[in-house]
Every structure is written in C-alpha cells, then in structure tokens.
Amino acid sequence: MAQTAQFNGSVTTLRGLATRPLTLALAAIAAMLIVGELLSPGFAAPSQIISQLTIAALLGIVAAGQNLVILGGREGIDLSVGGMISLGALVAGNVMQAENAAIPLALAVTLAVTFTLGLANGFGVTIMRIPPLVMTLGMYGVIQGALVVLTRGIPSGRAAPLLNDFVTNPVLLGIPGILFVWVMIGIGMTVFLRRTAFGLKIFAIGTNEEAAALAGISVRRTRVILFGLSGMFAGLTGFLVLGYTGNVFVGVGDQYILPSIIAVVIGGTSLAGGTGGYIGTMAGAVVLVLLQSILTTLNIDPSGRQIVFGATLLGLMLLYGRQRKLRM
C-alpha cells in the first residue's frame, strides 16, 4: 500500500508539472518583455511585439507538426523539418514566380509535396522500423542534397507581392495575416487534439502502444499520418517564410530544427509522448523568439545563441526527465 501511495504522490506532482509549463512560459514571456524594455527601450512597444509574434508564428507553425510527432511517442521526433521548410519555400517560390494568381496553386503543390515526403518518413519509421531520429535525419540529408543540386546554391523563386503583404504587413487592426493564421492553427490543433477521435488515438498510442493496438487502433496508420502532418506543417512554414523574406536560399529551414523541438518541450509536451498540447507549444515559440531577441540586443553572436538554446533544451530535459521514470 505504501508503494501505491508513493506512486500516487508522484503522479500528483507530475500533474503539477504538466500544468505548470504553460504558466512558467507565460511568466517567462512577461519577464523577458520587462527585461528587454529595460535593456533597450521600445522592446515591448506594440509594433515590436507584433513583429516578434510574426517570427514566433513561423516557428510555432512548424512546431505544431513537431508537437504531433512527439505526442505520438516511441521516440517520435522530426529532424527533417529543416529540409521540408527549405523545400516548401523553394517549391512555393518557383510555382508562384511573383504572380499573385499562382498563390493558391503554389500553396497546394507545397503542401502536397511536403505531406507526401512526411508520409515517407512515417513509412520508414513504422514499416521499415527505422528509428525516427535516423529516418528524419536521413530525409533531411536527402532533401538538402537534392535542393543544392537543383538550385546550384543560388536563391531561386520569388514570392508574390500579395503573399509578402499578408505575412509582413497589417491586414486587420494593425495585425498581419500570418498571426490570424497562427491563431486559427492554435484553435484547430487544440480542437483536433482534445475533441476528436483522432486526437484521442494520438494520446493513446503515445502512452501505451500495445494497449492502444488492443483497443482497436491502427497504430501504424496513425503514426504515418502524424509524420505526414509534420511534413505538411513544415511545408506551410516554408510557404510563409517565402512571404516573409521575399526569396529563399537552400538552408533557410535549418535554423528551425532545434527551436521547433525546444518550443514543444517548453510548452510541457513530454518527449516520451502521450501528454501535452499545442497551446503550451505556442507559448514556447514566443519564449524562444523573445530569448533570441534579448540575446541579439545584448550583442551575443549566433554561436552564443546556439549555446543558450542547446543549454535551454538540456536544462528542460533535466527538469522534466523524471516523467519517464513514472511510466509503467
């Protein structure tokens, strides 16, 4: 009985941990805004906040896919998102070639291509039983190599003016369109995870795959779809990155790989899968963008930022690492 009591006790703290990350992230956001404002007046001005959120939206959207793959458990992770973003941006830019009329077609082609490659990740992981880390890293290498060959390293494709406006300029109430897209994705993801049968299946395979299979869930199909969705979200991010920067070069997506994982972890999703959600991930994306901004304000160079980011991930892992022990 003592054992049971102890187990229950740690679960209570686990529940505490699971609800706390969001609170912590929000507190971190407030703290960083204050610190940023003190370091450099104007840091917390509305226009600044909106431009920070725009950058956070790009990270947040790719992290949505990362979030799904991680929730699905069994060491789920998608390192190919960097390549998918670059690919999405290049495909979109080359299809639209600065033509407003070609935007819908460009979006459709981009999403279709990245969704398909994401499914390939999923097949590799489920049917071929390749560990997700290896499979998606391999996919990243293949995409990246192919892009270098195809573009010969020269920036290629151009954004249509309308897309550019949508991402960077205010469309309504002084807020750019990308933020409306992000909020809609936030609502969509939350409803998807909490209120649909598919969402429940994701949590089920993430916590206990064998029990989920015995409950009648097609574990493989579910996981393949998760990887497909991750590819698609990365493709959408690439599409929006094109709008943000106007034109793109190979490797534009690389900077999103590690942050997309950290944002998910900051948001309280367990890397072991099965527990977490997207609202936390959105907050995590904002935290990371603000952190990066403050580091820039402090004149810390990119390599220094990499160190801070990597250390943040490892620190969070130490903090949340206890979760894994509680399983089974």
């Binding site: 686990l14 949590f203 089920a204 916590t207 206990n208 064998e210 029990a211 989920a212 015995l214 099965g274 527990t275 509680l326 399983r327 089974m328």
Partner: peptide, 9 residues
C-alpha cells in the same frame, strides 16, 4: 500495465 491502461491519461 502492458496491455490495458493508458497511463497518465
């Protein structure tokens, strides 16, 4: 624990 419950959920 192996074939039944979804822990944490």
């Amino acid at each position: 624990s192996r074939y039944g419950v979804l822990p944490i959920r």
